[in-house]
Amino acid sequence: MDKVIIAENLSLSYKEFETIISKASFSIDAGSFVFITGASGSGKSTLLKSLYGAIEPRGGQLVVGGVKMNKISTSKLNFLRRHIGIVFQDYKLIKEWTIEKNVMLPLIISGYTKEVSDPQIQKLLSHVKLTHQAGKYPPELSGGEQQRVAMARALAHNPILILADEPTGNLDEYSSEVIWNLLEGANTQLKTTIVVVTHRVPSSISVPYKHFHIEMGNIHEIA
């Protein structure tokens, strides 16, 4: 089976003599569903950052979607990012854009016109139950609503890989269910690889999944 992510002795840190992840080796198969858990501050978001190239490996090797992340060039990174959908822990919505345009962002970047992308956007907005908020701006939405916008945006361009950082952190049980269903749908129907950081693996999950746990800078799989 193809690997979407391969890490060998991967070390991550923000400062030189600090370690957040230390010599971790793991791989993630294409089309798989992966949960990453760990205590607050253990380095879950940091690991995700390395996967979309926001920080470079301090040591070891990291390959994402066949692209080596060590010393990656800007143009290669831009290309890779156009095939990844990210849900950030702090959402990172564009304040001066409407909800609709925010969801459209990945499609704008890929050069699709509004006419072409509109059906996809409307479909996603209805999936996350935000059709009625389409014309509003992010600051006018609740935290949970913003989180759902971020989810819709991550799915907009049918990415090969979705990286989601606590995508249900701000949601009630019902809205969380909506998100899990969307991710499962993308995984089963589009064979999208899903990597989700969460503090608890949801019991309702019905697809086969892998579970990695981060502790003391180590990443190990929980069977």
């Binding site: 979309y52 926001a54 143009s75 990174l77 831009n78 290309f79 890779l80 990012r81 156009r82 095939h83 990844i84 990210i86 950030f88 990172k92 919505l93 564009i94 304040k95 001066e96 854009w97 962002l105 990945p106 970047i109």
Partner: peptide
């Protein structure tokens, strides 16, 4: 700056 950095996270080239 904020908008430009978010766009970068989704792979938008500098000119865009």
């Amino acid at each position: 700056a904020e908008r430009m950095s978010i766009m970068a996270l989704f792979g938008a080239p500098v000119w865009l």
